Computed example of a mutant assay.
Amino acid sequence: MRELVYYVAVSLDGYIAGPGGEFDAFPVEGDHMAAQIKLFPEAIPTVAADAMGINQIKATFDTVVMGWNPYAVGLPAGMTSPYQHLQQVVFSRNRTEEDIPGEHPNLELTHEDPVEVVRRLKSEPGKSIWLCGGGQLATQLSGEIDRLVLKRSPLLFGNGIPLFAPGAYQPSSFEEVSTTAFGSGVVISEYVRRRA
């Protein structure tokens, strides 16, 4: 069965974005970048990967799920299908296709229950499913997350969008399987869910 992998950058104080959804404080230069590109080339927006000559081989992910806010980050720049090399599922309770200008290949906007959608995706053949964010969606899908890959940056945001939003979810135990510290100060840690 396919895994749901929550792969995300996070500050030392547990935020994946600032109060207004800002994420540009996360370092995009340094020795950690080569490791990220090697591990998860599919998690780079298609346009950026093309410009950098990165082959997005779908070694790990062939699908990405995200909330409206992470998706909408690229809209002002005309990026209506940020990961068009993947199947993209965007969850929103109140947005419609009319809120997406122009063409958006390989992208589905849905009002469906995220848990039901992810369970359906997991039952289908394919590679792992990348949970891109945000915190509200991560909370809704907390019981479905099989693996966490956290890119901890040496930053404090003080406020913003948390890794997991407050909500009703059961305590879960994860086991650390790897941690790599980079000269840039970024630490990438991977955890797998402990199964009963």
Rank of each mutant, 00 (worst) to 15 (best):
D113Q: 01
S81A: 09
D50E: 13
I100Q: 02
Q87H: 14
L156S: 07
G78P: 07
Q136S: 10
A48W: 05
D50G: 07
T60E: 15
Y83H: 04
V64S: 02
R152S: 10
L150E: 10
P82I: 01
A25F: 14
S81F: 01
I54V: 05
P41D: 09
G67K: 00
P76A: 11
Q88S: 15
D50F: 09
V118S: 05
H111W: 00
L39Q: 02
L141S: 02
L148K: 06
R93L: 12
V64A: 06
S81P: 03
S92Y: 15
E112A: 12
G133A: 13
A43R: 05
P105C: 09
G135L: 06
A34V: 09
Q140Y: 08
M79K: 07
V47K: 02
Y83L: 08
S128H: 13
R120G: 09
P76K: 09
E29I: 13
L107R: 04
H85E: 13
L137H: 04
V28F: 06
V28T: 14
P27W: 14
M79N: 09
A72C: 15
G67H: 00
V90M: 04
E42Y: 05
G53F: 08
L150Y: 09
Y83T: 01
V89F: 08
T63C: 04
M66Y: 08
H104F: 04
A34L: 10
G102A: 03
G74H: 03
L39H: 00
N106H: 05
P70V: 01
L148C: 10
Q140M: 12
A34F: 12
R152W: 10
A43K: 07
G53P: 08
D50L: 13
S142G: 06
E124S: 03
S92D: 15
P41I: 00
